[in-house]
Nucleic acid binder design. Structure first.
Lengths: 334, 334
DNA sequence: CTGAAAGCGCTTACAG
DNA sequence: CTGAAAGCGCTTACAG
């Protein structure tokens, strides 16, 4: 039975217990200095009245929302959903909830409109899978909001980033293809301005160079230049290549499916290496050879760093120094 | 150049323009009655001072957060991420952002701990992919928070639900298998208490009955009874069945992958029908025969209903009356 | 069309 | 260990 019909506030608890607002607040927030007896009385009243704290009021006064923003362009790519889930689970342990933001494919970069929402909502920190627009960097830095770019290196040193060892991933992938006897190897990317894309491409180039295989610009294609996977697949069939290293698994699935429609099969016609090891999380009955990231570890690292940034603990720099390791997982496409 | 170093508030805009707080608020919220000239002065000051409204303060006073909660148990299942993305995109058009909540696999139901977070944060509405625990129903109804269950029917009439026509989906799936000459058809579910599961199973039973095929309880297995996909796959190999209708695609992928490890192939050893048509969104190079849901339409419906509920417009009942239609998509597994 | 005052529900100094 | 007061930054009646 709830004695009050609606909206039980800290004030009601005070009236009920005969204590001051201050004391109630202290007990509820477990701030030092109150007696066991006081605590008991408060908790009993809280229970009896069915009091639920108003987090909005608390945020306004305390200046923190216990909420972290997560930003991406496309939640549908399982890499993002797996990472988001891992991050959210880790944050939950420190009682942070998350808001997710996207510009719904309008841009591959974090822009001012979206960032202003985050500022307006007084979120405590931001984890972004999207690189900020270069013009936005100053704003982000000046805002003082703890900001962490995940999985990308970023275009400015002032933006902290938890990066993957993308060049190593590219090398592993292409070394593997070369080891299988391929020399005409295509690189399929998303957009050359994305740092992860650039890193993976760099590894591709290095592996070719290490084996004295000349790099052919024709063998490189970006989705940003072809718009659709269909066009990209068509382009691929025009190239005299027999192996592909592709920016990520999500792209790989789409392109392999388009190739199938054109009668081209993997691995019969193309050896294929992807990136992200999506199949592990989804248990897909497709076994792509792919560069694998330990998303659990990465999510944990991202949250560790973010919490340190929120607390003003500068030791997080240590964690960011070395990129997250990657490894090659052999599937049935090479 | 920003004249003020930090935290520009409505007060600064008032000082700058010589107008009252009231007027500034009116202009910013586009409430009726202010002159063009006033608007110009306010907007100019907003621009010059770089004012960004404090959404927390606004929420506390106005009693709404312009935020919707989305609740699920597992963001990794692409069905949820696709739906979440569709819902978020539709909500964004009405300037709502989202918070996502999960109990991280701890339960298949929405519980009090999670719901209290939503109450505490004063979220304007809830879209839940999880059925509430029966004990929680009273609390939800009494809270007055607009609540919509999506994709499930729920266990209580007081909880509004946007349901799929699961029985129809089950009938379509099993009629198709029967049409292909199968009579020993297994049903693999998640948990019999989930309404979507019960609905699909009902369709399964009805299709069998319509063709005079006796229903065999041994042919029915739930993940909740076997814990792991491995155990479920093992169980399946012990059954004398040659066809499977499975609760969803995500399960299907996992089980088909486990079967492969045991040398059992789809469709060679089992004809297979899934549910959700995940492959459409992800362009997977696996073509499952599956019952397809129009997630774009469903996301739009869910948001339409929710906005009406928020606005107190009762006409949303019309939309909920008929379940979302489903259709069979033929793949290569039957 | 504009202004002055009150208040949303908390937490934070400051006293005692 | 506890209390009384102020205030976070807005919006909402209420006047004029």
């Amino acid at each position: 039975m709830k004695p009050t019909e609606k909206k039980v506030t800290i004030r009601d608890i005070a009236a009920e217990t005969g204590l001051s607002l201050n004391t109630i607040s202290k007990v509820l927030n477990k701030k030092p200095y109150y007696s066991k007896e006081t605590e008991r009385r408060v908790m009993e009243a809280v229970q009896r009245l069915g009091y639920i704290p108003n987090a909005i009021a608390s945020s306004l006064r305390a200046g923190r929302s216990k909420t972290v923003a997560i930003v991406f362009d496309d939640l549908i790519n399982p890499y993002y959903s797996v990472m988001t889930f891992s991050i959210a689970r880790n944050l939950a342990q420190s009682r942070y909830d998350i808001m997710v933001f996207s510009n719904y494919g309008a841009s591959s970069f974090l822009d001012a409109t979206l960032f202003n929402k985050i500022v307006s909502r007084k979120l405590d920190a931001v984890i972004s899978f999207l690189e900020p627009q270069p013009e936005l960097t100053d704003t982000i830095v000046q805002s003082g909001i703890p900001f962490l770019l995940v999985g990308r290196k970023g275009n400015d040193e002032r933006i902290d980033a938890l990066a993957l060892d993308d060049a190593e991933g590219g090398r592993l992938a292409v070394e593997h293809l070369i080891g299988r006897g391929h020399t005409r190897i295509a690189y399929i990317g998303a957009h050359p301005a994305i740092s992860a894309d650039a890193g993976r491409f760099q590894g591709y180039c290095e592996a070719l160079a290490a084996h004295g295989i000349p790099q052919c610009n024709d063998y490189v294609a970006y989705l940003s230049d072809y718009q659709t996977f269909e066009a990209l697949a068509r382009r691929l069939t025009e190239l005299p290549v027999d192996a592909v290293f592709c920016f990520n698994d999500s792209f790989s699935y789409s392109i392999i499916d388009e190739l199938r429609r054109r009668g081209k099969l993997v691995p019969r016609d193309y050896a294929w290496v992807g990136y992200d090891n999506i199949q592990r999380a989804l248990s897909l009955p497709v076994h792509l050879t792919t560069v694998s990231i330990d998303t659990d570890y990465m999510g944990k690292c991202a949250v560790d760093v973010l919490l340190k940034k929120i607390e003003g603990d500068d030791s997080y720099h240590e964690i960011l120094k070395k990129p997250i390791a990657v490894s090659l997982v052999l599937g049935e496409t090479t």
